[in-house]
Simulated scan of single mutants.
Amino acid sequence: MTYTVENVRDAVTVGEAAELAGVTVRTLHHWDEIGLASPSVRTSAGYRRYTDEDLQRLDRVVAYREAGLGLETVREVLDDATAEIGAALREQRARLAERIEELRRLDERLERLTESHERGILLDDEAQTEIFGEDWDAPRSRRARAVWGDSTQWAQFAERSASRTKEQWKALSGAMSALQLDLGDAVDRDVVPGSPEANALIERHREVFSNFFPLTRQMQVCLGRMFESDPGFAAHYDGIRAGLTSWFRRSIDENARANGVDPETAAWR
């Protein structure tokens, strides 16, 4: 209720009330409009003023708002004599605890994303050797960031790595190992590059490799060239089976042609 008086010495203006309560004038206007906390007097000149009692209510509104209660809950707490304030606060604490847990999980996710962008594989060297074999060069895998760190593919690799568990890495490593054995077997049996069997193996490679980042056929052609030209990769594939590196590159090229991609003009896209 608002009443008019000739002279209100102790009442304060909206601006003064906002400063005392630590909120904005706009906020006070809103609370006034919804009837949550209104100035109860008006001077004869028509100006709204907050009395000490009004300011006490403002203090309570601010206290409960800072505790996270919604405006309607605050109104109920202040206006309903039967309202159980403790119950409302306990309910708010329960909601807050849920939010804290959500933020904790979010922080963990952000930490893993940050580390995976910096390190790639979020496993220590011992675990990497256990999963990928004694020939695995963990330091070299970390150095890959220096080469690929600014690429979209590194970001995609990191994003997937952040959520990949040790067991999932084992399963992926197993799939890659099985594929490499089948590639070596194809070389032993003189499977012709471009044949249906060879093409199926190349498509299988693209599918398995896409667990790291989406691998297009053009990108796969580029990988085949890199496998053949890079001494480290060439030694790895030829170590599986003599001549595998060259056979693999030729098979990738033939599969690309069969799918409308010219290996001679293929680019990393």
Rank of each mutant, 00 (worst) to 15 (best):
F248P: 06
L55R: 08
G86C: 02
Q92A: 01
F213Y: 15
A266F: 00
V187C: 09
L103M: 12
D137I: 02
L183R: 06
N7K: 15
E76K: 10
E254Y: 06
L172S: 09
A21T: 04
G224V: 11
G174F: 04
L122Q: 04
R257G: 02
K170C: 13
L20D: 07
G260N: 05
D238W: 00
S251D: 01
A63M: 14
R204F: 06
Q153F: 12
A162P: 06
A200Q: 07
S38T: 12
S163I: 14
G86K: 09
T114A: 13
Q92C: 00
E197G: 08
V5N: 09
R143Y: 15
C222H: 01
Y50D: 03
M1R: 10
F212S: 07
R145S: 06
A87F: 13
A158W: 00
L71T: 12
M226K: 12
D135I: 09
L113V: 11
T27L: 09
T245M: 02
F157I: 08
Y3N: 10
T165L: 06
V62P: 00
D185Y: 06
E101S: 14
R99L: 13
L181W: 12
S173N: 08
D188M: 11
H117T: 15
D125S: 11
G68Y: 07
V208N: 02
I85W: 09
G120W: 03
N259M: 10
A37I: 09
N211W: 14
V74K: 00
E130H: 12
A63V: 13
R49K: 09
N255D: 10
T114C: 07
L172K: 11
S177C: 11
R112K: 14
A256E: 00
L201G: 01
T13F: 08
V77I: 13
Q92M: 04
S116N: 05
E101F: 01
A94F: 08
E126A: 15
A127R: 14
Q153M: 12
L36V: 05
R140H: 12
A267Y: 10
A127V: 13
W148N: 07
Y47K: 11
